[in-house]
């Protein structure tokens, strides 16, 4: 599944970049995130709850931030598995100063789901992914500038 889209954040590029590298901020902004613990350079252990169609369950996995190019772009890899299946996603996140104010975020990547989630939640996964990403950026936008 391809994931791509845009979002707006009311920050400078430097502030936006820094927020998205901060595990405490990410833990607050990722919907359903219970914990995000640093396990290495740019690598975090993730625990999150996921609700998809008739399924719900917790995931354990990892988040990796790679290819840092502050304050312009970085890559993010998220993978996790739990009782209801597994998910894996990777994408490039770009930050550009918006002509009016704040920054424009564009993201582009691939995601894969498997197990019961794929068998049962496939109809919903597109919408669910878009909704989760939207919530993530909304939450991020509420951080102080």
């Amino acid at each position: 599944m391809k994931i791509a889209g845009t979002a707006k954040l009311p920050f400078t590029p430097e502030r936006a970049y820094a927020l998205m590298q901060d595990p405490l901020i990410l833990a607050k902004a990722i919907p359903g995130c219970d914990a995000l613990d640093k396990t290495g350079d740019d690598e975090y252990r993730l625990k999150m709850k996921m609700v998809l169609a008739s399924l719900s369950g917790s995931f354990e996995g990892k988040v990796r931030l790679t290819a840092p190019d502050p304050p312009n772009s970085f890559r993010m890899l998220v993978e996790g598995s739990g009782k209801i299946g597994f998910m894996k996603g990777e994408g490039l996140i770009k930050i550009t100063a918006a002509p009016d104010a704040g920054v424009d975020i564009t993201y582009e990547g691939d995601a894969q789901i498997g197990g019961t989630m794929a068998a049962v939640g496939n109809r919903m996964i597109d919408m669910t992914a878009r909704m989760l990403i939207k919530r993530f950026f909304e939450k991020l936008a509420s951080e102080p500038a």
């Binding site: 789901i113 197990g115 794929a118 068998a119 049962v120 496939n122 109809r123």
Partner: peptide, 14 residues
């Protein structure tokens, strides 16, 4: 099935 081997029609909703 999707290309990764997931049966995406795995219940009566699909």
């Amino acid at each position: 099935y999707d290309d990764n081997g997931q049966l995406v029609t795995g219940e009566f909703m699909d």
